[in-house]
Amino acid sequence: ASVAVIAAGTQGNIFATSALRSMRFLQILRMVRMDRRGGTWKLLGSVVYAHSKELITAWYIGFLVLIFASFLVYLAEKDANSDFSSYADSLWWGTITLTTIGYGDKTPHTWLGRVLAAGFALLGISFFALPAGILGSGFALKVQEQHRQKHFEKRRMPAANLIQAAWRLYSTDMSRAYLTATWYYYDSILPSFRELALLFEHVQRARNGGLRPLEVRRAPVPDGAPSRYPPVATCHRPGSTSFCPGESSRMGIKDRIRMGSSQRRTGPSKQHLAPPTMPTSPSSEQVGEATSPTKVQKSWSFNDRTRFRASLRLKPRTSAEDAPSEEVAEEKSYQCELTVDDIMPAVKTVIRSIRILKFLVAKRKFKETLRPYDVKDVIEQYSAGHLDMLGRIKSLQTRVDQIVGRGPGDRKAREKGDKGPSDAEVVDEISMMGRVVKVEKQVQSIEHKLDLLLGFYSRCLRSGTSASLGAVQVPLFDPDITSDYHSPVDHEDISVSAQTLSISRSVSTNMD
């Protein structure tokens, strides 16, 4: 405001104040949320940038038409019409005319000016109207692209899951042992070998009828009888010197917790746990005396209480009078009846079946994303299906024409109403129809010849004498029936064969 007042002088105070007050009108834009329509302006900018070359070309040609039209109309009207006294007036008329506004304040009066105005109007309006069409088509394409992008975003994750499931299904095939990355992934998420051994031990116990592997080994086996189970490696608790092959000598807290839970599941009659010990102070733990958990001091820290809870689970003690015997301790020893080589084939089979199920689920979810969402998608899918159906029908028609023997030239002739090819031409065609016709002709010829021969033979049998045999009239074959199959017997006289037959029969009768 200060700059405006200084620039306008003393009389500019009122002007500056009114100008600043008129800017209050811009507050109405906040009512229509114009300040939060950044996406709309961004869309407009992207459309203009995408079609910038077309817009520049249309505007450039339109500007050239405007300059030439205004100049030529000015030359034609400057002497006869006072409205075109300057080139600026003519340029104003050209702008209003070519933009199809047409105020009518300035019009050419001479015939030359009117002809020039009409010609440049028809030429220039087309170029001035091009930017509107370019922007409209650009907006339509952009909206369609955003629509497809939205659908693509919805299909991206199911497609990625389907590709991942397909690759993992491919890589978990037993015949592709060189693909090891997927197996490394499952090695990292699978439970430890100790848990798998416990699982298979329970399965084997159920197969043995509820007997433990130790009891199965204690059962008497006759001499020479084959053992029911192959000899396997035996594993004891981590306190002993022997372990399962492939295990580490260090046992983690999870393994100890699972070991304690498995020992508690063996039965309360074979294992008696004394009350857990509780320390009397955060600094020292008295293991010899058993106290109640309700006497825990409230001033303990979080670490002390955590250690106390761990001691409740991981440090059970047995009383002296209830101490288990050596046999019970041997039964409680952890027996590992299986090795990694025995378990891994079954584990890989389970993983393979899981990968198949996940692949089928991913495939079903991806197919669900291909379903249409709204009416536009339904129409688009219907149009695509219609085009596909037309293509299939056209391909089927082409194959039928190839089989029947109607080529493209014959199809055009039928469409024009011309006469089709004759039967002889159809026979000569190298097509399925021509071959079928040729075979039918040959079969008819053979059938006719057989009928003639059978009739001749029956007449010979009825006559009974050589004289009557020679008097029999043998009809000749019709050459038209034989089609294109020409037998060497067709052109010979059958009477010669009949005479030869009669001579042979007379000779045979004389010999008798």
Rank of each mutant, 00 (worst) to 15 (best):
Y170H: 01
S171A: 00
T172I: 00
M174I: 09
S175I: 03
S175T: 07
R176W: 03
A177D: 08
A177S: 04
Y178S: 08
L179M: 03
T180R: 06
T182A: 13
W183S: 13
Y185F: 04
Y186D: 11
S188G: 03
I189N: 07
P191L: 09
R194T: 13
E195K: 12
L198V: 02
L198I: 09
F200C: 00
E201V: 03
H202P: 11
H202L: 08
Q204R: 02
Q204H: 06
R205Q: 04
R205L: 02
R207C: 07
N208S: 07
G210A: 15
G210R: 11
P213H: 13
L214M: 02
E215Q: 04
V216A: 13
V216G: 06
P220R: 14
P220S: 07
A225S: 08
A225E: 07
P226H: 14
Y229F: 05
P230A: 01
A233G: 05
R237Q: 03
G239D: 04
S240T: 10
T241A: 03
S242C: 12
F243I: 02
C244W: 09
G246A: 09
E247K: 12
E247D: 02
E247A: 12
E247V: 06
S248I: 04
S249T: 11
S249N: 03
R250Q: 05
M251R: 13
M251K: 14
I253F: 05
I253S: 13
I253T: 09
K254Q: 13
D255H: 09
I257T: 13
R258L: 08
R258G: 06
S261R: 08
S261I: 14
S262Y: 08
R265G: 11
G267S: 04
S269Y: 05
S269P: 14
K270R: 05
L273V: 08
P275T: 06
M278L: 02
S281T: 15
E285Q: 02
Q286K: 03
Q286L: 12
V287M: 06
G288D: 13
G288R: 15
E289V: 08
A290P: 04
S292R: 08
K295R: 14
K295T: 11
Q297P: 13
S299C: 07
W300R: 12
S301G: 15
N303D: 13
N303K: 07
D304Y: 13
D304E: 13
R305H: 10
T306P: 12
R307G: 11
R309P: 06
A310V: 06
S311Y: 02
R313T: 12
P316S: 09
R317S: 14
R317C: 07
R317H: 08
T318I: 11
S319P: 13
A320D: 06
A320V: 10
A320G: 15
D322V: 14
D322H: 12
A323V: 07
E326Q: 15
E327K: 15
E327G: 06
A329T: 15
E331D: 09
K332R: 08
S333T: 11
Q335P: 03
Q335E: 01
C336F: 10
L338H: 04
T339S: 04
D341A: 01
D341Y: 09
D342E: 09
I343V: 04
I343S: 07
M344I: 04
M344L: 02
P345S: 05
P345R: 04
V347G: 10
K348R: 02
K348N: 05
K348M: 05
V350A: 01
I351F: 02
I351T: 03
I351M: 04
S353Y: 03
K358N: 06
A362S: 06
K365E: 00
K365T: 01
T369A: 10
L370M: 06
Y373N: 03
V375A: 09
V375M: 03
S383L: 12
A384G: 03
G385S: 15
H386R: 10
H386Q: 03
L387P: 15
K394R: 03
Q397L: 03
T398N: 09
R399W: 02
V400G: 03
Q402L: 02
V404G: 04
R406L: 10
P408A: 03
D410H: 01
A413T: 11
E415G: 13
G417D: 05
G417S: 01
G417V: 09
D418E: 10
K419M: 08
K419Q: 05
K419R: 09
G420A: 13
P421S: 05
S422P: 07
D423N: 11
D423A: 13
A424P: 06
V426L: 02
E429Q: 01
E429V: 10
E429K: 07
M432V: 14
M432K: 10
M433V: 03
G434R: 12
V436M: 12
V437L: 01
K438T: 09
K438Q: 05
V439L: 05
K441R: 14
Q442R: 01
Q442E: 03
Q442P: 03
Q444H: 15
Q444E: 03
I446N: 00
E447G: 11
L453M: 05
F456Y: 09
F456C: 04
Y457D: 02
S458P: 06
R459G: 12
G464V: 09
G464D: 06
T465P: 06
T465N: 10
T465I: 07
S468C: 13
S468R: 15
S468N: 12
A471T: 04
V472L: 02
Q473H: 07
Q473E: 07
P475Q: 04
P475L: 06
F477L: 13
D478N: 15
D480E: 12
I481V: 13
S483T: 15
S483Y: 08
D484H: 14
D484V: 14
D484A: 03
Y485C: 14
Y485H: 08
H486P: 09
H486Q: 10
D490H: 06
H491Q: 03
I494F: 03
S495A: 10
S495P: 04
V496I: 15
S497C: 14
T500K: 01
L501P: 12
S502T: 14
I503V: 02
S504P: 04
R505G: 10
V507L: 09
S508R: 02
T509A: 06
N510H: 09
N510T: 07
M511R: 12
D512V: 09
